Every structure is written in C-alpha cells, then in structure tokens.
Computed example of a mutant assay.
Amino acid sequence: MSLKDKLPGQLGFGTAPLGNMFRNIPEAEALATVDAAWDHGVRFFDAAPLYGAGLAEIRLGEALSKRKRDDYVVSTKVGRLILDELEDPSQRSMGEKGGLFEHGNRNKIVNDYSADATLRSIEGSLKRLKTDRLDIVWVHDVAQDFFGDEWLSYFESARTGAFRTLARLKEEGVIKAWGLGVNRVEPIELTLALDEPKPDGFLLAGRYTLLDHASALQRVMPLSLEHGAEIVVGGPYSSGVLAGGQNFEYQQASPDILAKVARLKALAQRHGVSIKAAALQFALANPAVAAVIPGASRPERIAEDAAAMAEKIPAEFWHALRAEKLVADNAPLPYGA
C-alpha cells in the first residue's frame, strides 16, 4: 500500500503556524482554523514538537478531541525532544534560522535522534495530541540547513536510532508509515540509497513549489517513484511569498524571488487564475506527490485553499507558464501541458 493510499485526500493541513510561527495567534483563532479545515473536508493533519515547543500539537489535539479518531490521519515528527526545563523566549530558534517560534511555549528543545529519544518524543506527542495512536511519523530536519557541516553525524544517529525504531513500530502495527520531514533533498537521496528498511515516503517542505522545484525534480522525484516512496509537499506557497507574504525560506524574500513572484502573479492574473490554485495544482501534477499540506492560522485561509484545489485552470495558463520559462521544461503539468 502506497503512502497515497494511507492518506484521506490530497489536501492536508500543516500546523506549524499554530505554534505561533511569526506571530502570537489567539487560542480561539487557532482552534477555529482547525475547525475550518475540518469543515472543508481536510482529514490529514501534520504537526511536530518543534512547532512552538509543543504548542501546535496541543492546539491540534484540543481541536480534534471532539472528532472520532478513525475519521482523520495525523502525522508528527521525532528528533526534537521537548524538555520540562524552560528557556528565555528571546532565545527560541528553529535550527539555524532563529526566531520563528519566539511566541511559542518556553520549553527547551534538544536535538536527539536516538532510539530512546524517539520513543519519548512519540509518548509526548501522544499526550499533547490527546490521541492513543499516530498514523505517520517523520524524522525531522536531519539536514544541512539545520546542522551545517555536522548534518551527516546527525543523520547517522537518526539512521541507527529513529529509522530503526520507526521501522520496528511499523512492523508491530503501532504506526502506519514513517519517513523523513525535511527542507532539503540530500537526506532523501541518502535514505533511499540505504540497504536498511526503506521509509514509506517523505515530507519535503519548500522544495517542490512554483518558485523552487529544480533540485527535487532532478534528484528526488524519480527516485521516490522508483522506490515507491511518495512525497507529501509541505510549504507549497514557499513560506508564504506566493500567497501574499514577504517570507521565502523562513526569512525576508530577496529581490530576485519577489521579481519571480511578480511574474508568476502577472501571468496568473492574465489568465484569470489564482496563484494559490496554480501553486497547489502544480505540486499535485507530479506523480510522485501524494498530498500538499499548506499551513494556515486564520480560518478564511482554509477556504481559500479548498477553493484553490477545486479551481478550473485553463490549459493555456500552463502552456504560458512553460513558454515563459517559469517552470522547468521537464516539470509535469496538469493537462499534459
């Protein structure tokens, strides 16, 4: 059974914003956003301990506690362990990028991909999510963008710890699937080259979008199909810059990125296409992609995502996108454009 067969649909909900990413989100607004996702048919929710030091999981668990557990799929991540010890909120960081969750919980987070930490992380997530089981578990951010030149040592720790532990939990029926949740393609390539138990799929954030897809297209998508390990696309709006924001790669977008966004939006406007629809449907056109999980922290954004999935985009738009070299020549497009 493929990863796509384990998911309840192609549109999921990424909960990083519920961890107070970039801003202090009122509790009622966060819970209402999850309710809006549910009301629009979303049944796949992705979380992580890192998101606000457990805040996103707590909020998601509260919102879903009134739902039947068999009616939804939830994924979370291991590799970042939340401690009882508190830290100065001004020191809150996300790997090397800093500051994303400064408004989250104050609990200290440590990087630990060992077998013991994996089990303790899962136990903590179960409590925060108010559930008795997890469907999918991703190994979180074991890549160079967070650990620099030391990333391979962290990867090795994950290989001998988290990978083997999650593979065993799947064999025992405790979880349905496991894989990596990363922002870079290199850990996926390395994982698929291993002889040890293979993951069921990957959550790849920010690397298969209208703005940035060349590396994934060349190095990950064909391998994923070959190994039967499909991709869940996270960050389909490229940290928000495709959806009206100013951030790309979790920081202020460069002039070059903003110029490309302007070209994409101008082309979409000429064809009467919403940029969100173009972004989501572009990602889903690749046969290696099982689902997309845009994030949101306001209920109205969920309605926009649902409408974007259903929007009819003329083939002429995709042909123009190709003609203006705004997508790679070999990127699969809807309608075979």
Score class of each variant (00 low, 15 high):
63 A>M: 13
82 I>Y: 07
16 A>T: 00
205 A>V: 03
8 P>Y: 01
161 G>N: 06
223 L>T: 01
261 V>R: 08
259 A>W: 12
163 F>S: 11
173 G>Y: 15
319 H>Q: 15
159 R>I: 06
79 G>M: 08
119 L>W: 14
198 K>N: 11
207 R>P: 02
209 T>H: 05
307 A>Y: 03
153 S>R: 15
62 E>C: 10
81 L>V: 09
323 A>S: 12
59 R>T: 08
156 E>H: 14
28 A>Y: 06
17 P>H: 07
208 Y>G: 00
93 S>C: 12
145 D>R: 12
268 A>V: 03
148 G>Y: 08
219 R>V: 06
308 A>N: 09
298 R>T: 05
35 D>Q: 07
23 R>I: 12
267 L>I: 13
285 A>V: 09
58 I>R: 15
72 Y>W: 13
116 D>G: 10
202 F>G: 05
75 S>T: 02
278 A>G: 09
127 K>V: 06
322 R>Y: 10
239 S>E: 08
305 D>M: 14
234 G>I: 07
191 T>P: 01
79 G>E: 07
77 K>C: 12
232 V>F: 01
37 A>V: 06
86 L>I: 11
94 M>Q: 13
41 G>S: 04
286 N>A: 12
170 K>D: 06
127 K>I: 07
271 H>A: 03
15 T>C: 08
34 V>F: 00
52 G>L: 00
100 L>Q: 12
148 G>V: 14
193 A>C: 10
332 P>C: 10
247 N>A: 13
191 T>C: 05
119 L>Q: 15
270 R>S: 15
156 E>D: 15
115 A>R: 03
73 V>H: 00
335 Y>I: 05
287 P>V: 05
161 G>P: 03
186 E>C: 08
325 K>N: 14
120 R>C: 03
229 A>C: 09
284 L>W: 04
158 A>C: 11
199 P>A: 08
133 R>C: 12
113 Y>N: 01
221 M>Q: 02
165 T>E: 07
140 H>N: 06
97 K>S: 13
125 S>H: 00
259 A>Q: 14
281 Q>M: 10
237 Y>I: 03
9 G>S: 04
91 Q>G: 11
326 L>D: 08
79 G>W: 11
273 V>S: 07
206 G>W: 00
75 S>D: 02
214 A>N: 14
306 A>S: 13
188 I>R: 04
199 P>Q: 10
318 W>L: 00
233 V>T: 03
291 A>T: 08
231 I>A: 02
125 S>A: 04
222 P>N: 13
69 R>T: 08
31 L>S: 03
12 G>K: 00
76 T>K: 00
24 N>C: 05
324 E>A: 11
320 A>D: 12
